[in-house]
C-alpha cells in the first residue's frame, strides 16, 4: 500500500447545513374550523449543522426524543426538512431524493420492516430487486451477505422464525445489499449477545476502513460502543447539537479535572490525614493498604505534591488510577445545563 492509498479520503459525504424541522399540527385549518383544540407544532430539530467525512464513523448521541431519529430520516429522505439542506454524496435530499436513497442504507432494530412470512432469502431478494440489482447479481450479493452476517444456515427460514439477534443481522445485511456509500445504523448491537456484538463492531470498523470506504452514521444509547467506534461524536439535545468533537475533545470540553486514586502502604490512616492536610478528598482502608482519592485540575501540581508528601513520610505507592469524565457524564451535563437554562 503506498502513502497515497494509506491516506484516508477526507471529502464530505454527508453535509448537513442549518437543518431545522418543525412538525406542523396535522390538519390545523380543519381543526380550527371545527373549533377543536390545536396542539402547538413540534420543533424536532433546530439549526443543525455538521459534516461527515468519507470513511468516518460518526456517532450521534442523545436522549429519547432528542431528534436523532428525525435527523436520520431526513438524511434517508423519508422526512423533508422545514429549512436548511442535506446533501449526501453531493445530491440534495429533497430535489434528488432517489439518487440519495441509492447511496444510503439504513439498518434499524425495527423488526416489522420485513415480511414475516417470507424466508430470509425471499426478503433479501425482494429488496435487492428494489435496488435495481439483476437476479443473478442479487443472488451473488445475498450469498456474500449471508456468509458475512452468519445467516447462511437460516436462508430458508421464515423471517418470523428468526431470533431477535438474527433479525437485527438481517436488517444490517439488507442495508448492505447495494453496497451503499453511507450506512445509517440505529442501535446496531442492541439485541446481540456480547460475542456477536463484538463481531458486529469489528465489521462496522472494517466497512469504514474498506475500499471504497463506507461512511457510517451511528445512533446508539450504548455510549461505550459509540466511544469505541466513533471518530467523532455529536451530542444532540432537544433538537440542537450541543457539542461535537472526538470523544477526547468532548470530555476535555466538559470537564478539565480528573479523579485520581492512589493505593499506598506503609503509613497509618491518621498519619496520612495529617500530612495531606485537606489535599485528599477521601482516604479508605483497603486490606493492608490505603486508597487516597482526590480530584485535580488537569496539569496542576496537586498530584506531584501528594505523591511527594506520601513518599517523604515513608509511604510506598503501589498503584494509581486516573478517571476522566465519561461520555455519559458529558451527555448528562449538557442535559443539566439545558434544564438549568430553562428554569432560569
Amino acid at each position: 500500500m503506498n502513502a497515497t492509498q494509506a491516506q484516508p479520503r477526507r471529502d464530505r459525504i454527508i453535509s448537513i447545513d442549518h437543518i431545522s424541522k418543525t412538525f406542523p399540527t396535522p390538519l390545523w385549518r380543519l381543526r380550527k374550523f371545527f373549533r377543536r383544540s390545536i396542539k402547538p407544532p413540534v420543533q424536532a430539530l433546530s439549526d443543525v449543522t455538521f459534516d461527515v467525512r468519507a470513511g468516518e464513523i460518526f456517532g450521534l448521541i442523545g436522549r429519547n426524543g432528542a431528534g436523532k431519529t428525525t435527523l436520520t430520516k431526513i438524511i434517508a429522505t423519508l422526512v423533508q426538512p422545514t429549512s436548511g439542506a442535506v446533501k449526501v454524496g453531493g445530491f440534495d435530499s429533497v430535489r434528488d431524493d432517489e439518487k440519495v436513497r441509492a447511496q444510503v442504507g439504513l439498518a434499524t432494530a425495527e423488526e416489522r420492516s420485513f415480511y414475516w412470512r417470507l424466508t430470509v432469502e425471499q426478503n433479501l431478494m425482494f429488496f435487492a430487486r428494489l435496488y435495481g440489482l439483476s437476479d443473478a447479481l442479487a443472488r451473488r450479493r445475498i450469498i456474500e451477505l449471508v456468509e458475512q452476517f452468519e445467516l447462511k444456515d437460516l436462508v430458508s427460514r421464515r423471517f418470523g422464525e428468526l431470533s431477535t439477534g438474527n433479525k437485527q443481522r438481517m436488517a444490517f445485511a439488507r442495508a448492505m445489499l447495494s453496497k451503499p456509500l453511507v450506512l445509517l445504523l440505529d442501535e446496531p448491537t442492541r439485541s446481540l449477545d456480547p460475542l456477536a456484538a463484538a463481531r458486529m463492531r469489528s465489521l462496522i470498523n472494517s466497512l469504514a476502513g474498506g475500499s471504497p470506504p463506507t461512511t457510517i452514521l451511528l445512533t446508539s444509547h450504548n455510549l461505550t460502543e459509540v466511544e469505541e467506534l466513533c471518530a467523532r461524536i455529536a451530542i444532540i439535545s432537544r433538537g440542537r447539537i450541543r457539542a461535537l468533537g472526538t470523544p477526547k475533545e468532548l470530555r476535555a470540553e466538559h470537564r478539565q479535572t480528573e479523579r485520581v486514586r492512589l493505593t499506598v502502604n506503609g503509613l497509618a490512616r491518621e498519619r496520612v490525614h495529617q500530612i495531606l492536610n485537606n489535599d485528599a478528598d477521601e482516604i479508605e482502608q483497603q486490606d493492608n493498604a490505603l486508597v487516597v482519592s482526590f480530584t485535580r485540575e488537569t496539569g496542576d501540581d496537586r498530584f506531584d505534591r501528594i505523591v511527594r508528601a506520601l513518599h517523604d513520610d515513608g509511604g510506598k505507592i503501589l498503584s494509581f488510577e486516573t478517571e476522566r469524565a465519561t461520555l455519559l457524564e458529558v451527555l448528562e451535563s449538557y442535559e443539566q445545563e439545558h434544564e438549568a437554562g430553562e428554569e432560569s
Binding site: 423519508l78 436513497r101 428494489l130 435496488y131 439488507r174
Partner: peptide, 14 residues
C-alpha cells in the same frame, strides 16, 4: 400497517 412501508420507501424508487 405491516410496518414495511419505510423499508420499501428507503429504496431508490419513487
Amino acid at each position: 400497517m405491516q410496518g414495511t412501508l419505510e423499508s420499501v420507501l428507503l429504496s431508490p424508487i419513487s
